[in-house]
Write a protein that binds this DNA or RNA. Structure first.
Length: 562
RNA sequence: UGGGGUGUAGCCAAGUUGGUUAAGGCACGGGGUUUUGAUCCCCGCAUUCCCAGGUUCGAAUCCUGGCACCCCAGCCA
């Protein structure tokens, strides 16, 4: 039952491709590409695009998906982002094989095509400055005006463009513009800039260029050079499609890919804009791009979200042109579903309350067999120590419990998971504060393993950890980063950051076997949630755990409603 | 007074060549199983598809007119 066997639901892009295939368009090829700009870390919105592009290629025989870095703005891009992006894509489970490309690989070809446009009188060198250019562009409701340079001779354009490349001019002095239509109702067609002067060192081409091509010009040509059949991008590029097609129609390119736009992903209680994520990091609201609260791929990875869960999520939310906000619970559900079938169950006490088993010998230790997964016996089992003093969860005891509380209370009997029934006989409190500091319980030796020979039942089963052998360590409990569903819509979105988005628990008590846990390994801490070993802050003798997601809990739900 | 898009349940989303009782998931509510108040399993959850007209024996699907929301005036992508 691999995820590849799950029926995939229909969407408009799959339909377009099926239709193209039935008409033998592109000779039956399906070739997509994922085109990140290496100017930041990938987030869950990019995951949607990665799954779409690589997924579409994978579901068609012979389909391919390229990885292409859209590196046309050296001022914002860094080589380290390139490596991080590659890691993220591989981690998500996708592979571009030998098809790793860079828009900068095409700079020479792009330059030649620009010369071609100039020769055809389809492009010209303009000396308007930024403000003038804006003024000449017109507004949304008024047409623009033609630049005085628009009818410069081809020879002069060729000469100036060559000198732009040679570095004879300073940034801003000239730009190369496409000669289209200053009166177009589509502002993108009002003689867009296609080359600007930037005397910036490029992370791949070094100092060899003084001019860099713009996105609209570069992207469509790169697609064509790579033989892309379906160029998928987000909705805000819909208005750019006429321009995408215009360039390809003017130039002797090998093919004319089809640009198709889909809606970007929005998730509630978080933000998915590179700019805002950047600000969260820069302003110190989180501890880096890989902070487990971040919706970045590295953040989700560190949080313990399995790549299969993210892929499943991307498939479930569908692909449309609707502007939507997906409920975080959908993602969390995918994570729980994946973790439920893949993780070992272990016991950990996050908020410990000391329990003395009065009738269990003080110097004795006993090993109890505990399966790793109640529904998957093939996952095996381990032995957990039991002794005179154990820790239980403070929330599992109430001195004066409400009627539906099935856990421990004075005089009550509960089952210790995979161990014994215990009965609470005495509650020890701190004299001055009145706080419960210890419970004295007796155990029934007849109930070893958790069932009573006399058939008597107990309502509750609680988890526990033997005190003498417990591994004391740090556990971090994460919650949503924002307190409102759509922080991104607010001007003052920082004010809605959740002050309790992380709680550091320094004295959690875990069963001793967890000392062997490996970096990034996930577990279910029974009755609490799924946790993973933090890959950065753990030490060989002291793993630190991140809570990935809680278990569903109808008890807290019931209490909230009452 | 410009152009480009989108409107099916609380949140996503199938359905679109007009023809069953409008898929499925999340969320929610109810019940069963259970040594995790987990998992799992049942059951419920839109007489109605943004609104108003029209065409038709028949419309979420076709036509007309509205309304709402999103995107666009970088030498960013």
């Amino acid at each position: 039952m691999t995820e590849e066997e799950k029926p995939r639901s229909s969407n408009f892009i799959r339909q377009i491709i099926a239709d193209d295939l039935s008409r033998n368009k592109n000779n039956g090829r399906v070739h997509t590409r994922f085109p990140p700009e290496p100017n930041g870390y990938l987030h869950v919105g990019h995951a949607k695009s990665i799954c779409l592009n690589f997924g579409l290629a994978a579901e068609h025989a012979g389909g391919q998906c390229n990885l292409r870095f859209d590196d046309t703005n050296p001022e914002k891009e860094k080589i380290e982002y390139i490596e991080a992006i590659k890691d993220d894509i591989h981690w998500l489970g996708f592979d571009w094989e030998d098809r790793l490309f860079y828009a900068s690989d095409y700079f020479e070809q792009l330059y030649d095509y620009a010369v071609h446009l100039i020769r055809e009188a389809k492009a010209y060198v303009d000396s308007l400055n930024l403000e003038e250019m804006r003024e000449y562009r017109g507004t949304l409701t008024e047409p623009g005006r033609e630049s005085p340079d628009r009818n410069r001779s081809i020879e002069e354009n060729l000469d100036l463009f060559k000198r732009m490349r040679a570095g004879e001019f300073e940034a801003g002095q000239y730009v190369l513009r496409a000669r289209i239509d200053m009166a177009s109702p589509n502002i993108n067609m009002r003689d867009p800039t296609i080359y600007r002067i930037k005397k910036t060192r490029h992370h791949r081409t070094g100092d060899s260029w003084n001019i860099y091509p713009m996105y609209d010009y570069t992207h469509c040509i790169s697609d064509a050079l790579e033989g892309i059949t379906h160029s998928l991008c987000t909705l805000e590029f819909e208005d750019h499609r006429p321009l995408y097609d215009w360039f390809l129609d003017q130039l002797p390119v090998p093919c004319h890919p089809q640009q198709i736009e889909f809606a970007r992903l929005n998730l509630n209680y978080t933000v998915t804009s590179k700019r805002k994520l950047n600000e969260l990091v820069d302003e110190g609201h989180v501890r880096g791009w890989d902070d487990p609260r971040m919706p970045t791929i590295v953040g989700m990875r560190r949080r313990g979200y399995p790549p299969a869960a993210i892929r499943d999520f991307c498939e479930r939310i569908g692909i449309t042109k609707n502007d939507t906000v997906i409920d975080m619970s959908v993602l969390e559900n995918c994570v729980r579903e994946e973790l439920d079938r893949t993780t070992c169950r272990v016991m950990a006490v996050i908020n410990p309350l000391r329990v003395v088993i009065t009738n269990f010998p003080e110097d004795q230790e006993e090993l109890l067999d505990a399966p790793y997964h109640p529904n998957l016996p093939e996952m095996g089992s381990r032995e957990v120590p039991f002794s005179h003093v154990i820790w239980i969860e403070r929330d599992d005891f109430m001195e004066d419990p409400p009627k539906k509380f099935f856990r421990l209370a004075p005089g009550r009997e509960v089952r210790l998971r995979y161990a014994y029934f215990i009965t609470c006989e005495e509650v020890i409190k701190d004299d001055s504060t009145g706080e419960v500091v210890e419970l004295r319980c007796s155990y029934d030796p007849q109930t070893r393993g958790g069932s009573a020979p006399d058939g008597r039942k107990v309502k509750g089963t609680i988890h526990w950890v033997s005190a003498a052998q417990a591994l004391e360590t740090e556990v971090r409990l994460y919650d949503r980063l924002f307190t409102v569903p759509e922080p991104g819509r607010l001007e003052d979105w920082r004010a809605t950051l959740n002050p309790e988005s992380v709680r550091i628990i320094s004295g959690a008590m875990l069963e001793p076997g967890l000392l062997q846990a490996k970096a990034e390994e996930s577990f279910q801490f029974e009755r609490l949630g799924y946790f993973c070993v933090d890959a950065k802050d753990s030490k060989p003798d002291r793993p630190v755990f991140n809570r990935t997601v809680t278990l569903r809990d109808s008890w807290v739900k019931q209490n909230k409603s009452s």
